[in-house]
Design a binder for these strands. Structure first.
Length: 1140
RNA sequence: AGAUCCGUAGCUCAGCCUGGUUAGAGCACUACACUGAUAAUGUAGGGGUCAGCAGUUCAAAUCUGCUCGGGUCUACCA
């Protein structure tokens, strides 16, 4: 055991951290922190797997700090917290990285590079920066098991995913369907939203847009429209048209419906067609009327209209809500063979197309307020089309050209996908045709932003593609209910962003047409009549053999003996299975969404249910997870959705193992109980960090420069984790200086004197009640701190915890306790009071260090071990192995804390008064006056009187009660109490009280009640409904804060002046001592020359002076010529200070 | 477009849930003081349309609605 506390030369956090890291490594501190809790209840944490194919940034440090501090805190609270690391290894970013590296595109796959080679490259690339990530993890002090992480590309992991998928399949929750997705005809591939969000994909383009008329069919449903039109004078045939607008006329042949907004106002307008000049009735949203009609044409003379007139007359015939149009039929716009009703019903047998539908997505921003609906070419169209059963027509093939059976348009490309020299825009031709037929109402070039394929630069279309879905909507209610049991931090994200998301849930599109990912384990016969979903490797191997036996020949030859070795493409695709009727079955080519990989991690990280069932049962669900808020609809959702959907499957497996607990209660279908979603890290100007802007902060450099502790502390205390953080290095510097610097100073102070006195906490603790009041106070504050910090951590409010600790260390411990107690450490013998001071300060330091350990694990451990090395109070080898402090409530004395606050305020007020009259603190003053308004205040103040007097260097306090009659008082309403009683009269009463003079106040106090005339009425007031404070003591300079007022006697008597001189003299000698490099304990001899009138002061206070400066006596030597010249209150004298 | 968070001193943030005296800290700035914790510390000062508008109320930074600005997520529209 050491006999001296380690002293530092100066504070160098990065250097300290390096040593601490070495020690942790050497002593396997992390592993021990887990193994020491063997048998304790577990606290379950899931690590959201990062993808290691990019470099980590500073934003990764914040969520990992949060994760780490919670896990450390829970360990300190006695839980066993296993933290398995993980790596997300599949997905598009990996593929893109590889393609960039090899200089290839997707089209090269299978041509210049085989799928096997390509995937091998991906496998190699995926952990490229794993070392960097591991470095960051280590350096920032994130304790997580890096040795046995789960890796999503392993066969075991994928096998668990397949199990999940098969369970879903068995429940009918996995199905194949069509969905409308971005598709690039030029590249012949679907595009992910990620690809669509690449910079530059959305471009401004000019397209031919057309507003066209759909002719209303006259029948029962539409009769009201015709009636309205008929009420006007009408000649010729009555023709009514719905107007709809499109920027993609090529979708018009595929039109099957028109969608209107139920609450939008529509009008029926009589006018002329601007191209054919024939009279027409058109229907469009009222709000958009003036996009098509010039105001001066309203009710203009129809009879004088001539072809080509600029102003077209019109009048509004009728107005109605969109909902009245529901179900109204219209004639098909561009009928051909391929889009005949027979053709439509050949695809969708009961289709009822060419009707008006209702849709929430309709706006009156642009267009006509009626949306041309072609279900194949828009997600909204598809959805509303499906709801109304209008069928679906896909009259454009995958190359982007019209199919056969569309007359003159057959075979034409809808956009110039082939860079044809003589390309004619088919959209123009369609518009021209419609113009001629009197079906076009307005044709113009329209400029808008439209997505383009990032590889070919050609416009994207929305196109129906086959996809596999998970029917999450079937379990929506369960997910919504379970979500209410999750502790969301902040709560608003759970009810808001996440809750809304659940409410508006759509089925989960799992399919991805890519190469590097988890393959969908579904095999189908060519005609789709039979399909198989495989749930394990064993099952697949069985089927492989079976297929070989039935189909014979070379089928599955490569996989017969060893079974399948890699579950990725291309190998799984080479496997052929056999149907019950002996048909070959091939795998559905899709891979699954990588979010499924991460959402299934609770099962797959344990290779559940194939292995580790016990581990799984113990580690499910998570007590706590934490990621960036951008994961709300990502990982948070997929974890939640899968847990809800797999609930029964998990129960079944656990029951197989004769699991005895209450499965419903312990595994309610929840993946996590608490989730913290942290905000983003922005640069100091509030901009998102991006490589492009060059404002990214390098976490390695930050940690190297300022230390992980300061960085972590800054990240946690500067803003709530869920608020965005404006990251500024200046802030870290401030934390370093203010918090760590202060704590370091306090420790240094302690170590300095404890080493001198040999304090090693060997004496029995002095009962707190026997220690001085100030010790009782700081210990009471300390216990209060422990309580508050514990609550804050328990509520996942680390920001609060950190700020509380900061405040305690700075305001209470350093700037009050240590400052006031300094003398106790350096003066006097090593006994009672001094030992109490050491014990108290030691306890404070030790406790603070344990409280802060979760947030700043390095410095806390360093100080803890430095303290413990001498005292040996703990047997543990690290602060991270000891239990969290528990507040000793018996030490909490609220009254004491209150009166100390009073003392602090009083001192601060006196100091400000001294400042005002320019009398330095070293000059003693005689007294301060404090008006007291009640007994308890005086009582409280008396108990801290000595502290105040010492702190402000004043001899006495005089308490003034109002019996003297010269305290000037002020009265104010107690708004809280009076507001409820008075209501509207409040203002008048408040005004009346402000007019009170001293006499009224005194009367009120004496009677205890007051009858106040207000608006000719009387309001009865009692004392508790007002606040009376002292405002002034006439003739004195006063200062006040809240209810506390102090006045200072600034008369300096000759005696006080002499004492002031003596103190000043002491101060100068101490400086000389220090300059001469004497040890603290050196005794000195002082020779004094001509003292310029100070002799009397020095002689009178010789005893005091000698004790202070450790001299035996003062020697006066007249006419001293050498020696140091010092100045004492504007008088100069020479002194010689020498060691004895 | 929808959802959500944020907007308080030059900067970083408390306070808002639960309305009530003169809206607080720290940093920075200025001045002074302190000097056996000294690469520390104290005191004082200037600095605010609490984003804006409207409403509820005796009383609004605080509650409600709208608007503006910023961020994020989701969606992508004729």
């Amino acid at each position: 055991m050491a006999n001296r506390y380690k002293e530092f030369k100066h504070l160098n956090l990065p250097a300290i951290e390096k040593e601490v890291l070495d020690r942790w490594e050497r002593e396997e501190a992390f592993q021990k922190s887990v193994s020491l809790r063997e048998g304790a209840p577990s606290f379950v944490f899931y690590e959201g797997p990062p993808s290691a194919n990019g470099m980590p940034g500073i934003h990764h440090v914040i969520s990992r700090t949060l994760k780490d501090l919670v896990c450390r805190y829970k360990t300190a609270k006695g839980f066993q917290v296993e933290r398995k690391g993980g790596w997300d290894t599949h997905g598009l970013p990996v593929e893109l990285g590889v393609e960039k590296e090899l200089g290839i595109t997707k089209e090269d796959i299978g041509k210049t590079i085989s799928v096997a080679e390509y995937n091998q490259k991906c496998r190699e690339a995926v952990l490229r920066y794993k070392d960097k990530w591991d470095d960051l993890t280590t350096q920032m002090g994130y304790w997580v098991d890096l040795k046995n992480p789960y890796i999503t590309f392993t066969n075991e992991y994928i096998e668990s995913l397949w199990w999940c998928l098969k369970e879903l399949y068995k429940k009918g929750l996995l199905y194949k369907s069509v969905s409308i997705q971005p598709y690039s005809p030029a590249a012949g591939t679907g595009l992910s939203s990620h690809e669509l969000n690449q910079p530059g994909t959305y471009k401004m383009v000019k397209d031919t847009s057309a507003t066209v008329g759909f002719k209303v069919v006259q029948n029962e449903k539409s009769q009201f429209l015709f009636n309205a039109a008929n009420s006007e004078l009408q000649t010729g045939d009555l023709e009514l048209y719905f107007l709809a607008w499109t920027t993609t006329p090529w979708t018009l042949p595929s039109n099957l419906g028109l969608t209107a907004g139920p609450d939008i106002d529509y009008v029926l307008v009589k006018t002329f067609n601007p191209y054919t000049y024939q009279p027409q009735h058109v229907i469009l949203a009222k709000a958009l009327l003036h996009k098509y009609f010039k105001a001066e044409g309203e009710n203009a003379d129809f009879s004088s209209y001539a072809e080509g007139d600029k102003v077209i007359p019109y009048n509004i015939v009728s107005q109605f809500k969109g909902r009245q149009l529901e179900g109204v039929e219209y004639e098909q716009l561009l009928p051909y063979e391929a889009n005949s009703l027979e053709a439509i019903r050949a695809i969708t047998p009961d289709a009822q197309p060419f009707r008006v539908l209702m849709g929430d997505f309709v706006t009156t921003e642009d267009g006509t307020g009626m949306v041309h609906t072609a279900p194949a070419f828009g997600a909204d169209d598809y959805k509303v089309g499906k709801k109304y059963g209008i069928g679906i027509l896909t009259l454009v093939d995958r190359e982007g050209k019209f199919v056969d059976g569309l007359g003159e348009f057959s075979g034409r490309f809808i956009k110039d996908y082939k860079n044809q020299a003589d390309y004619q825009d088919v959209n123009v031709d369609i518009s021209v045709k419609l113009k001629r037929e009197g079906r076009a109402f307005k044709v113009e070039k329209y400029e808008h932003s439209y997505p383009h394929c990032w590889r070919t630069d050609k416009p994207v279309v929305y196109y129906p593609l086959d996809a596999w879905f998970i029917k999450t909507t079937a379990l929506k209610d369960r997910m919504v209910d379970l979500n209410k049991t999750i502790n969301w931090k902040p709560a608003a994200t759970g009810t808001g962003r996440f809750g809304q998301w659940l409410e508006n849930m759509v089925d989960w599109n799992l399919s991805r047409s890519r190469y590097w990912g988890t393959p969908l384990p579904v095999w189908r016969t060519e005609d789709g009549s039979e399909e198989k979903c495989i749930g394990s490797i064993a099952e697949l191997n069985e089927e492989i053999v079976k297929a070989n036996q039935v189909l014979g020949g070379d089928v599955n030859k490569a996989y017969l003996h060893d079974g399948i070795l890699d579950l990725h493409k291309p190998y799984v695709d080479e496997v052929v299975l056999v149907s019950s009727t002996g048909q070959p079955m091939r795998r559905e080519p899709d891979l699954i969404d990588v979010w499924f990989d991460s959402g299934a991690m609770p099962y797959a990280q344990a290779h559940f249910p194939f292995e580790n069932r016990e581990f799984f049962a113990k580690n499910y669900p998570a007590d706590f997870i934490c990621e960036g808020v951008d994961q709300t609809r990502g990982w948070f959702y997929t974890l939640h959705a899968l847990a809800a959907m797999l609930k029964e499957s998990v129960h079944e497996v656990l029951k197989e193992d004769a699991y005895l607990g209450d499965v419903d209660k312990e595994y309610p279908g929840l993946a996590y109980k608490t989730v913290v979603s942290n905000g983003l890290v922005l640069d100091k100007n509030g901009n998102k960090m991006s490589k492009r802007l060059g404002n990214v902060v390098d976490p390695f450099k930050t940690i190297a420069d300022f230390g992980a502790d300061a960085t972590r502390w800054y990240l946690i205390t500067n803003a709530s984790p869920w608020d965005n953080l404006k990251f500024d290095l200046e802030g870290i510097k401030e934390v370093q200086r203010k918090f760590f610097g202060t704590l370091y100073n306090t420790y240094q102070f302690f170590a300095l004197y404890a080493n001198v006195d040999g304090f090693a906490f060997k004496e029995a603790p002095i009962p707190v009640a026997q220690r001085p009041e100030i010790d009782q106070w700081i210990l009471s504050s300390l216990q209060t701190l422990v309580q508050k910090v514990t609550t804050a951590f328990d509520e996942y409010e680390p920001t609060q915890a950190g700020r509380l600790i900061e405040d305690f260390v700075d305001e209470q411990l350093s700037n009050w306790y240590v400052r006031l107690c300094r003398r106790r450490f350096w003066k006097g013998e090593y006994e009672g009071d001094k030992i109490a001071a050491y014990q108290t300060l030691y306890e404070c330091l030790e406790t603070v260090v344990r409280l802060m350990a979760p947030i700043s694990p390095f410095f806390a451990d360093e100080l803890f071990l430095n303290l413990n090395a001498v005292s040996g109070r703990f047997t543990e080898a690290s602060v991270h192995h000891v239990l969290f402090p528990v507040a000793d409530e018996s030490l909490i004395d609220t009254l004491l804390e209150e009166r100390m606050a009073l003392a602090q305020d009083a001192s601060s007020l006196v100091l400000s008064l001294r400042k005002k009259v320019n009398i330095k603190v070293r000059q003693p003053l005689q007294k301060i006056l404090v008006p007291v308004l009640n007994g308890s205040m005086e009582d409280q103040l008396r108990q801290v009187e000595n502290l105040i007097l010492a702190e402000v260097n004043v001899k006495e306090i005089e308490y003034l009660t109002d019996t003297e009659g010269f305290i000037k008082k002020k009265i104010r309403p107690n708004f809280g109490a009076l507001g409820k009683k008075l209501g509207p009269k409040m203002k008048a009463v408040s005004g009346a009280l402000a007019q009170f003079g001293q006499h009224e106040i005194a009367l009120f106090e004496k009677e205890g009640r007051y009858s106040l005339p207000v608006d000719g009425d009387f309001v009865e007031l009692v004392l508790s409904e007002v606040e009376i404070t002292s405002e002034d003591i006439p003739g004195w300079t006063v200062a006040s804060k809240g209810a506390l007022t102090v006045a200072l006697d600034i008369n300096i008597t000759p005696e006080l002046e002499q004492e002031g001189n003596a103190r000043e003299f002491v101060n100068r000698i101490q400086k000389v001592r220090k300059d001469s490099g004497f040890e603290l304990t050196d005794r000195i001899l002082v020779k004094i020359g001509d003292a310029d009138g100070l002799e009397s002061s020095l002689i009178r206070f010789e005893n005091y002076i000698c004790t202070e400066i450790l001299a035996d006596k003062l020697e006066f030597i007249p006419h001293l010529t050498d020696g140091t010249e010092i100045e004492v209150n504007d008088k100069t004298l020479k002194v010689i200070v020498s060691k004895i």
